[in-house]
């Protein structure tokens, strides 16, 4: 067993590459999905029924489809529409499309639970349009969303493991190729699991820090 782990140590650079790809895909994917999700939350909350129906349809569709299925659809389907990506980009596109729906739903949920009074006060003081959203509504959403966005980020980190199936060189893919080379599956996958655990712990520490800030402001 000790020999196994020393073999892994020798392949540490490959694991590290995988880890970096996992982190990059998760972070870039989460940031883009959050930004797009915030935009998508606006039609979700719109009074126009057509806007609401279309955006709600997209969100509910994504919530019914397994992430791997969407990844395949992006990987095999988009080239037919003339959009050709490499594996890495296809994976990122899948993460962003999928999680935009989840982020939008998180934001919509918080938005609809925001105290209507604080928004009404802002309207009475002459706030309207984008300034109302950016100065009064968004800051309150951001402060309330920490734990849920953290959970979603953990979900994204875990979902990146699916991308091994379309040969994106992320952490699980790296682990799988190392174990196949040296036949040491136990040590490699345990190492991978511990690395995922560490990543998720980091996210939780981050959420905890944001919560400390948010607690005073609610």
């Amino acid at each position: 067993m000790i020999r196994d782990f020393s073999l892994i140590w020798q392949s540490a650079d490959r694991l590290l590459d995988g880890l970096i790809n996992t982190v990059l895909l998760s972070l870039v994917g989460a940031v883009l999905a959050l930004a797009l999700g915030a935009l998508l939350a606006i039609p979700l909350m719109a009074s126009n029924p057509v806007l609401r129906l279309v955006s709600r349809g997209f969100v509910d569709l994504m919530r019914c489809v397994p992430f791997l299925m969407l990844t395949y659809l992006v990987y095999y389907g988009l080239p037919r529409l003339g959009l050709r990506f490499d594996n890495w980009t296809a994976g990122l596109v899948a993460i962003v499309v999928y999680n935009t729906a989840y982020m939008a739903e998180i934001i919509r949920g918080i938005w609809s639970r925001l105290e209507r009074e604080t928004i009404e006060a802002a309207v009475a003081f002459g706030f309207h349009g984008w300034r109302l959203v950016s100065r009064i509504i968004l800051p309150q959403i951001v402060l309330a969303a920490g734990p849920m966005i953290g959970n979603q980020l953990i979900q994204i980190i875990k979902d990146t493991a699916f991308l091994t199936i379309i040969a994106v060189p992320e952490l699980t893919h790296a682990a799988n190729s190392i174990q196949a080379q040296y036949f040491i599956p136990f040590a490699t996958f345990i190492t991978a699991v511990l690395l995922y655990w560490a990543l998720c712990m980091l996210v939780e520490v981050g959420v905890y820090a944001v919560e400390r800030i948010a607690e005073k402001r609610r």
Binding site: E115, E117, A121, V123, F125, G126, H128, L143, R218
Partner: peptide
């Protein structure tokens, strides 16, 4: 429109029963 209303609203000051302070500020 909202912008025109806002111009008039900013000439009034409202004090609410439940204060309605903005909690993030």
């Amino acid at each position: 429109g909202n912008a025109e209303l806002a111009k008039l609203r900013m000439r009034m000051g409202t004090v609410f029963q439940h204060f309605n302070l903005w909690p993030h500020l």
